[in-house]
Computed example of a mutant assay.
Amino acid sequence: MVNKIKKRYNEIPLTVKVSTSYAVCSILQKCLSFITLPLFTRLLTTEQYGQYTIYSSWSGILMIFLTLNLAYGSFQTAMVKFEEKRNEYITAIQG
Score class of each variant (00 low, 15 high):
Leu28Glu: 04
Asn69Gly: 08
Leu43Lys: 04
Ile64Ser: 06
Phe34Ala: 05
Gln29Lys: 09
Leu43Glu: 11
Tyr49Thr: 12
Thr45Met: 04
Glu47Ser: 15
Thr67Arg: 04
Leu39His: 06
Asn69His: 07
Ile35Trp: 04
Ile27Phe: 11
Thr46Phe: 15
Gln48Thr: 07
Gly60Ser: 12
Leu28Cys: 10
Ser59Cys: 07
Arg42Tyr: 10
Thr41Asn: 14
Ile64Cys: 11
Cys25Glu: 09
Thr36Ile: 13
Arg42His: 14
Ser57Gly: 05
Gly60Leu: 03
Ser26Gly: 08
Thr41Tyr: 13
Ile27Asp: 06
Thr67Gly: 02
Phe65Thr: 01
Cys25His: 04
Ser33Ala: 08
Ile54Tyr: 02
Gln29His: 09
Lys30Phe: 09
Phe34Thr: 02
Leu44Glu: 01
Thr46Trp: 15
Leu70Val: 03
Thr36Gly: 03
Ile35Arg: 02
Phe40Lys: 02
Leu43Arg: 06
Gly50Ala: 15
Tyr52Ser: 10
Pro38Asn: 09
Ile54Asn: 05
Ser33Asn: 11
Thr46Glu: 15
Trp58Cys: 12
Phe65Pro: 00
Leu66Cys: 09
Phe40Glu: 08
Leu39Asn: 01
Lys30His: 07
Trp58Val: 15
Leu39Lys: 06
Tyr49Trp: 13
Phe65Met: 01
Lys30Asn: 07
Pro38Thr: 03
Met63His: 10
Leu44Asp: 01
Ile61Asn: 00
Asn69Cys: 08
Gly60Asp: 07
Ile35Thr: 05
Leu70Cys: 01
Leu32Asp: 04
Cys25Gly: 09
Tyr49Ser: 14
Ser57Leu: 12
Gln48Asp: 00
Thr46Tyr: 12
Ser57Arg: 03
Ile35Leu: 10
Leu68Ile: 02
Ser26Leu: 14
Thr41Met: 14
Thr53Gly: 05
Tyr49Asn: 14
Ile27Tyr: 03
Leu68Pro: 00
Leu32Lys: 04
Leu28Gly: 08
Trp58Tyr: 12
Leu37Ile: 07
Leu68His: 06
Met63Lys: 09
Thr41Glu: 13
Ile27Gly: 07
Arg42Asn: 14
Thr67Pro: 00
Leu39Ile: 15
Gln48Cys: 02
Ile61Tyr: 12
Leu66Pro: 00
Thr36Leu: 14
Thr46Met: 15
Ile64Lys: 02
Gly50Cys: 10
Phe65Asp: 00
Tyr55Met: 11
Phe34Lys: 01
Cys31Met: 12
Ile54Ser: 05
Thr36Tyr: 14
Ser33Tyr: 12
Cys31Ile: 13
Tyr49Gln: 14
Ser56Trp: 01
Leu62Pro: 00
Gln48Met: 05
Ser33Lys: 06
Leu32Met: 08
Leu62Thr: 04
Thr36Phe: 14
Leu43Phe: 14
Ser56Val: 02
Ser33Met: 13
Leu70Met: 07
Gln51Arg: 11
Leu28Ile: 04
Met63Ser: 09
Met63Phe: 11
Ile35Pro: 00
Val24Ala: 05
Lys30Ser: 06
Gly60Asn: 05
Glu47Asn: 14
Ile35Lys: 00
Thr45Gln: 07
Arg42Lys: 15
Ile54Met: 09
Ile27Met: 12
Phe40Ala: 10
Leu68Phe: 06
Leu32Asn: 03
Tyr55Trp: 13
Val24Lys: 04
Val24Thr: 06
Cys25Tyr: 13
Leu32Tyr: 07
Leu32Ala: 09
Gln29Cys: 12
Thr45Leu: 05
Val24Ile: 15
Gln29Thr: 08
Thr67Gln: 05
Gln29Leu: 13
